[in-house]
Design a protein around this nucleic acid. Structure first.
Lengths: 347, 347
DNA sequence: TTGTTTTGCTTAAACGTTTAAGCAAACTTT
DNA sequence: AAAGTTTGCTTAAACGTTTAAGCAAAACAA
């Protein structure tokens, strides 16, 4: 039971009375090895239950075939779906992934990057924590010369490949949807402006309001950390206004759910009295009552494209400075919370 | 911009005109290196921005300081919380984790194990896919001589450390809770008996029913795959009975939510007409209306203990065959769906 | 003084692969 | 038959680290 001896290519070589180099080449189907020897090597390898030592080959070849992934939270449908699709593309190309989570903490994100670099990953695919403003640790990755690809939460200052949805356009689309449903006073519970994606959503909201000649009222535009509890708080603020809105567009499904709870508790009819739209297409949006209109971020696409971009970078030796900025179109998923029948509009 | 030369201990050695071995020892605070040399080495290491090559040291030392983790789905609150706590314990001990997901597929689980072994992980912490019945690939881990720790979804046949909650006792507790609320005809939408944890929940249900001298009616015990849709289907079956139940205990929150949707749609009052209890304490159970009574599985504890068990195994050279079977007590979280006021019981 | 211990380093081998270079034998061409 | 090419392997070095063993010099003991 004690020491299980590792089987190495040397052991295979000894059995067949050939050199370890020949074994290595046979296992890699080198053209300079005879078919007979290849067959013999593979047979013995199987017999001895040989498992290649990844560390040794990675060390020798100077690449680990590992890709580091950093997400704010695995526990979100969006990110877990992104990762799943990333993984399937990368696995097919012979890469494995190491997933780390930053928990939206800048500190943790820095440590994750150090960990990944230390583990000698061949590249990093990341979505930035909300807290992150200092980009020096990301520069560290670039200075190492390994590919860095950002998705969803990116930064334009950092000159790297990026995959995400068009937040500006999504926001614009949501506002137009609400206008089409007869809403005239549309509020936005948004994220903090310093985060690029939330800033874009705010801009999309404002521009759409202007384009359709609706009055822009500053009290209708609120910044929030977008968690469920804050959604509740901000919704209550909106309801306490002298002139409350007839539609609320919330930049995250979680906060939208909080808002919906408040509306339900106060017996305000959704969508008849107030229309509600969330963002992200979290599964629960189709489970609550009424179901919440939201925006799908194409997590599968994002994961797939991020992985493919990494592979492209790795496989093109001449590091072209031209960057991939992949902006996907999002999809509006209309559900009950905004699906107002125009003929029986109340008040 | 082209080739960034890697800094190695040799470079540091050259600068200081000492041997690489001395540098290595200095960096590890070996007692046989003078304080002066140590300081100089560390200074130069910082100046050159030296990053140790993990692959090389792992190869030489025969350990990678990586722990493989296999979960059915990262996208569940339970598993992501387990992993988060596991990670924090392991990071402190100098280990990093590689997360893989089986998506409940036996196939994928096998490939995950191969991947992890190939990556030379020092141990594997896993929760088995529902599909898994053949355990030979887990035996492969054991035969490699590296620690294997199972959590939540384990198997008694496999002689390994295990951390989970006491499903039997949890089930028992739920039934007693429902009885205390005046329920007399308690149904159970359970998982498949071949999965150990679901079998235990079924046993706990049956035994509690018997102990309290309630009639055990076979039509009230249903096996299900426990997803939301099947929860709906099974709930409808129960409602179609000649003599429907006055309480339903569902072995998963997702299926419980499906059941709740059906009850709401059919305007059956919960908890007044039927009490409902789920399992797992998924976040949405506190978000829907009415909120769902459920059981918390102590994901934090499980993650922490699993990690600590791994460290114990790694650090005790003399592989003691005595196994850790850590069975935690679960916690009943009583919410509206079962919180019936006994004085105004209907019918 | 001489012998012993401690200190502070060096040398060299090892971890398991990969791969450039080399070389004999077999085959092909002229 | 001589020269060249191809085939099929071997040798040896390398990847960057760790570590056992060795050895001078310094410090200490008698």
């Amino acid at each position: 039971m004690g020491e299980k001896k590792r089987i190495t290519i040397k052991d295979i070589a000894n059995v067949l009375k050939i050199s370890p180099a020949a074994v290595s080449k046979a296992l890699h189907d080198d053209s300079r090895i005879s078919a007979k020897t290849k067959a013999a090597v593979k047979r013995v390898a199987k017999e001895l239950n040989y498992q290649p030592n990844h560390l040794a080959s990675a060390l020798r070849k100077g690449k680990s075939n590992l890709v580091g992934v950093i997400v704010p939270k695995t526990n979100s449908n969006f990110f877990s779906s992104v990762v799943e699709n990333m993984e399937s593309v990368l696995n097919k190309a012979g890469y494995n992934i190491i997933i780390t989570q930053s928990n939206e903490s800048f500190e943790k994100e820095c440590r994750n990057i150090d960990t990944l670099l230390y583990t000698q990953v061949d590249g990093i695919i990341a979505s930035m924590a909300n807290e992150t403003v200092d980009l020096s640790h990301y520069e560290k990755i670039k200075s190492k010369g390994i590919p860095l690809i950002l998705f969803d939460r990116g930064e334009n200052d950092l000159n790297v490949d990026y995959i995400g949805i068009d937040d500006y356009q999504s926001s614009h689309m949501i506002v137009e949807h609400l206008i089409s449903k007869g809403c005239k006073r549309i509020a936005h519970i948004g994220g903090f402006r310093r985060t690029r994606i939330y800033n874009n959503r705010i801009r999309g909201y404002i521009d759409a309001i202007h384009e359709h000649h609706l009055p822009q009222d500053d009290v209708l535009l609120i910044e929030s950390n977008l968690d469920l509890e804050d959604g509740r708080i901000k919704m209550k603020e909106l309801l306490a206004l002298d002139h409350p809105p007839d539609a609320v567009y919330v930049a995250s499904d979680y906060a939208a759910l909080g808002a919906l709870q408040v509306l339900n508790e106060q017996h305000i009819k959704v969508p008849e009295d107030i229309c509600l739209v969330g963002f992200g297409n979290e599964p629960f949006t189709s489970l609550v009552s009424p179901t919440i209109t939201t925006v799908s971020q194409h997590s599968k696409q994002i994961g797939k494209i991020a992985a493919e971009t990494f592979l492209k970078r790795i496989n093109t030796k001449n590091w072209k400075p031209k960057l991939d900025k992949n902006i996907l179109k999002s999809e509006l998923i209309v559900r009950d919370s905004s699906n107002r029948d125009l003929s029986i509009k109340s008040s």
